[in-house]
Design a binder for these strands. Sequence first.
DNA 1: GTTCCGCCTGTAAACGTTTACAGGCCCTCG
DNA 2: CGAGGGCCTGTAAACGTTTACAGGCGGAAC
Lengths: 375, 375
Amino acid sequence: MRVVSTSGPPTVETIATRAGVSTASVSRVLNGHGARPETVRRVERAAAELGYVPNAVARSLQGGRSRQLSVAVRDLRDPGHVAMVRAVQAVARAHGYRLVLHSTDTAADTAHAVADELDVLRGLADGTSDGLVLCPVHVTPEHVEALRTAAQPVVVLGAFPDGVEPPADGVRDDPAAGAELAVRHLVRTGRRRVAFLDGPAGTAPGRDRHRGYRAALAARGLTPDPALVAHADTTVEAGTRALHRLLDGPAGGGGRTGEGHGGGVDAVLCADDRLALGATHALHARGLRVPADVAVAGMGDSPLAEAGWPPLTSVDLGAAERARIAAEMLLARVAERDAGTARTPARTATVAPRLAVRASSAPPAPGARPPGVAT
Amino acid sequence: MRVVSTSGPPTVETIATRAGVSTASVSRVLNGHGARPETVRRVERAAAELGYVPNAVARSLQGGRSRQLSVAVRDLRDPGHVAMVRAVQAVARAHGYRLVLHSTDTAADTAHAVADELDVLRGLADGTSDGLVLCPVHVTPEHVEALRTAAQPVVVLGAFPDGVEPPADGVRDDPAAGAELAVRHLVRTGRRRVAFLDGPAGTAPGRDRHRGYRAALAARGLTPDPALVAHADTTVEAGTRALHRLLDGPAGGGGRTGEGHGGGVDAVLCADDRLALGATHALHARGLRVPADVAVAGMGDSPLAEAGWPPLTSVDLGAAERARIAAEMLLARVAERDAGTARTPARTATVAPRLAVRASSAPPAPGARPPGVAT
DNA sequence: GTTCCGCCTGTAAACGTTTACAGGCCCTCG
DNA sequence: CGAGGGCCTGTAAACGTTTACAGGCGGAAC
């Protein structure tokens, strides 16, 4: 004989006893399936009196769905990643899903971060998530394999390597178009020597950005100068140091020490807002005016951009929008799986960049070029 | 007779069949309880071959513990909240817990946000979390009641109203000491007319900050001037506007238009880094030099502080540290509950502020006071 | 050789929910 | 008045795991 324990939180059984009905009726009433008005009344009354809250774990086990979505991002110090998490959270919440946050930013290095991401992918089989929005450092072949065999739907925020069948849905940005947009804007407003302060060398988005940078220059008949390109980790300090180095170099000519060179730097495009802020610091420290002497533009259009001085022109690569779309694609997959529909092929979306023009890229001061000479 | 379905993910039963043992033995082996070496070998082999991943939902149901921790913060646009989430995440992860993020920043207003928080507290009974770190907007009487009856342990990031028995563990900061620290620093480095740009009026931390502000002034024999205090929403733009208003006011005397007043503002303490950045924008726009003419200090010591120009002196209120402690207190509660130990009374910890001095508060330029005169 | 003990294993219950199935009742229709 | 059907309800199984309990077996001690 089953004894209903008087202690512990109320369960369907507690309610059933109190209402004088079966657990099945309790469940039906609570889920809005049909029942006699009298039964409904008694069950609802008992549930209210007991302060009943359904056990979501038991529900998950029975239903095979956890009503939880996972999101994995590399590093919450990146404002873009924060924007993504917020967007996914909003969609999840709107659909009654909880959000599980897998942040791998405690990982010591990239290799660890990749390993963490693969762990998250394998962990999808544990039943705690109905799907995953993954923003990987870099999509490796291991990622592709893990995505193919993932136990739950995954949407990747980022691009897949060329030449492979996309192993999952994806929403990518367009760094090439973004860089091009920014450089066109800089050139259109009168800049001619546009430096490019990129993120760490050797990444796929980096190559894209560089491509866009050169394309925009070429479109205006300007020849890219390799000495105008530098790489740095995406931190403010690294940006400052890198820009100092660049301006001290042969092609710089933008510093107090570089006067007289054949044309100083009059604009800097940075691959990240943090780099861009670091760059403005270097310029300020050298007594160069932004934007009068040198224009600065960042990428990401994070809250940092508005916080900078002067407020920073930045390319919005659509982080939040991408994440929102990704979350919705994911929920569509989940629904598809629930409905037992045949699995449709992977879909890929691309979000176009948008330029947020602010004070840091206003047209140059008349006669301010080359810098150092006009002062 | 039970048929082991060939489809679907492997379960203990699948493994048991393949290894020729019972499900109990599978479970014991997988959990490291004793078994004959031969049995261990066969079970581990079968599990590996099948790529078995234990179902965490079933485990939770059986064990009564979800191995998930919840964290609820108001708004991820606040860098301090991001720091908290990161810290809680790190602790949770280190202890093998998943993190569920409840962000209420889609709430339209404060009332909605409070309602959301109460929902989260009630939701603790659904079995998906073993505990909650809650960073509430403001601890209302409803909060206190909900905390008392919470189904799982909760640690609150923030202070409880005076006079009530603390209904839960808490880790608070010390805004009064923080403000005092900053003002002392400003005064010690030669500032005399220290303005205070606070957050929205009427909040408990606001009163604390104001108290610390006046205490520091009083300690130096300076009389607080009410006209030097202003309130603004914690955004960059609001900070800019509020500081303009303040400087345009009777006691400001710090602007180009305010010259000749009986002593201009020579320092501004802001309740938030975003406000402080907004304040520097206003100062720059007025042609006032930071820190030569006016020093600026913020609170929170978020990444924004280092990104500002000049880099911003800021009071670290210990957001990350508080969150780390909170997460550890929470896990201690969970362990206590597991051990069946008697419930110990609520504990409260306070994290002391720390001042991060940067360029925005370097001593004033000689003869730069009153501002506008020395130029 | 018997007894006892310890180790290992299997059976089955339990966690809390949903739901397939079957049975009961009442109403309607023939 | 009987048959049939619809509606509601209860019983019980299922989700996948852990674990209390009992049984079996081997070895050691007497």
